[in-house]
Amino acid sequence: MANETDGAQPAPIAELSREQELSALRDMLLIRRFEEKAGQLYGMGVIAGFCHLYIGQEAVVVGVRMASREGDQFTTSYRDHGHMLAMGMDPKGVMAELAGKRGGISKGKGGSMHMFSREKNFFGGHGIVGAPAPIGAGIAFANAYRGDGRVSITFFGEGAANQGQVYESFNIAALWRLPVVFIIENNRYAMGTAINRATAQTECFRRGAAFAIPARQVDGMDVRAVKAAADEAIEWCRSGKGPYLLEVLTYRYRGHSMSDPAKYRSKEEVERMREEHDPIEQVRIRLLAAGVSEDELKKIDASVRKIVAEAVDFATSDREPDPSELYTDVVA
């Protein structure tokens, strides 16, 4: 059983091919540039309400997506833009939704925190932080019920991981051997509360043992480590052995939301993470060392910037929803 190693051992580092590294770089850059732009648009008043950026955490969802198969479902809480882009959802639709426009993924009715795509197997986008645990387990239940071999992958933060519904879900998922990977994205701060101020056992992966769920702690700043751990976890689930828990150690560079000046942590701490552990920079350095030219990397960045610019154009020029949309989609 995987948790016989107590889970604290570093996961093996996946050897990524050059194409995989390039793909990871591109996918993480897309999230980074998209989020930077979303932050700017928030400042300009184009995006309103709550807007939670994923900058710094890109390697988590990109590494997991590389390990998952077409048809596997993703669910997360409200820091969800990166997950949607990783699932291949149209950046235009996501940005337009952030702007509350009719061309948004949810027709402008969901907003930053509430987006879904049945086509791309993305099941939210949930404003209640612990909700992805049971909902992801429920999707896994449907997979097992149909025996279709799909794995449900569900993400939530270390703050959400203190909610009771998470443990209720762990218990049932283990009891019924549901094919669900629970991923705790531990970015150290639940809004402004550092993990050690809110959580007695700060090594979140250890909670798996209480439910006989194999668990592992992973360096979430290294996309190769995430990919390797996710490979192992997803394979475990797909082979019918039940759920798996990953605690992915990550870091968000920005505040909890756009309105957060992040005074609860030092500038130095943030700087150190950015300079020494940046998930995108790590891949860049490896690619350069492997002989990929600076020019080629610049081209990737340029292509990503173009996609994001088009998304911004679309979102800013699109119209607000028709007033008649107020009363549609309430019931089927």
């Binding site: 669910t75 019920y145 209720e168």
Partner: peptide
């Protein structure tokens, strides 16, 4: 026909997830 633990929050959420997925 599934017996659940006494955990309404969890199993209601699992039900909703299963419904999202089409059951």
């Amino acid at each position: 026909v599934l017996d659940t633990p006494i955990t309404e929050y969890g199993f209601a959420g699992i039900g909703v997830g299963a419904a999202f997925a089409g059951l």
